[in-house]
């Protein structure tokens, strides 16, 4: 079990040796919440990540971009050990520290880790329950029974997910009746109900229309004040609009990581330039 939760852990010096980032390369940042070093990751015999090292700062949005199969989703799923659920998946070398704690340490409980590192998937996946129960689910599992406290967290989570005004009068209705965009924001409300430190988003807008996409992007902008967000996206405009930092992956390697404005105006690597300008991928 993660003692005291990631949020209470002290960030510590990580002694960075190498980083593909070209700004702040290899220097430990005081505000780092996720620190990856020398990560080699396999699915069976296939290597999906090669010697990946990067730092993700707290309370910023970091976008992972790159062509399909480049390893960005694999890395995202490493952060809350979702890959543990895949029998083929193997982390062969390297470390992932979150809040200064090695998440593969024997003392770390993956279930507790996933409470601190929430995830929003490509396709919204509400439970076949009411809107209220979807948000309250994680809290109930965590042992919260007090109705007043549950009501308060459900309302706060739905407000923070910019959904409250649309559903306040029908909290007992099935979540499955919501539109795609509303379902995705409900999933975000569900993720933030348990007060995570980090929210991982795997192409959260891929199935949404432009209006619903805009609402989720606005939400991401608001949420970063309270949470660290890592988002995987194939949408270059989304990455440039939403994120503070962007990491470009290619064939399982981190090619470039930097401030989003710089990456999209003056990328340091030709592979990055070719990808973001649509020359390949």
């Amino acid at each position: 079990m993660v003692s005291g939760g990631v949020g209470e852990m002290e960030a510590k010096e990580t002694g960075l040796s190498r980083d593909a980032a070209d700004d702040g390369v290899g220097e430990a940042r005081a505000d780092t919440i996720i620190s990856v070093r020398g990560l080699d990751f396999f699915y069976g015999p296939i290597q999906a990540l090669f010697d990946v090292s990067l730092d993700i700062p707290r309370n910023l949005v970091t976008a992972f971009i790159g062509p399909s199969g480049c390893g960005k989703t694999t890395l995202l799923r490493c952060f809350n050990r979702m890959n543990d659920l895949n029998e083929e998946a193997r982390l062969v070398r390297g470390t992932i520290m979150i809040g200064g704690v090695d998440i593969h340490d024997a003392a770390v409980d993956p279930i507790e880790l996933r409470k601190r590192v929430g995830m929003v998937f490509q396709r919204s996946n509400p439970f076949p329950k009411s809107i209220y129960e979807n948000v309250a689910y994680g809290l109930r599992v965590g042992g919260l029974r007090d109705k007043g406290a549950l009501d308060e967290v459900v309302e706060r989570s739905l407000r923070n997910a910019a959904l409250w005004d649309e559903v306040r009068d029908r909290l007992g209705d099935s979540a499955m009746a919501l539109s795609g965009g509303q379902q995705q924001r409900l999933c975000i409300a569900r993720a933030i109900a348990v007060e995570p430190d980090i929210i991982l988003m795997d192409e959260p807008c891929s199935g949404l229309d432009p209006i619903a996409t805009m609402k989720v992007e606005e939400l991401i902008h608001d949420l970063k004040r309270r949470y660290t967000i890592v988002i995987v996206t194939h949408n270059m405009q989304q990455a440039s609009r939403c994120s503070d930092r962007t990491a470009f992956f290619y064939l399982g390697r981190l090619v470039e990581l930097g401030e989003t404005m710089r990456v999209f105006t003056n990328p340091a690597h030709k592979q990055t330039e070719d990808y973001i300008t649509g020359r390949f991928g």
Binding site: Q237, F264, E273, I276, T277
Partner: peptide
């Protein structure tokens, strides 16, 4: 094209 980088 919504250009970025050199194209922009």
């Amino acid at each position: 094209q919504r250009p970025v980088a050199t194209d922009l």
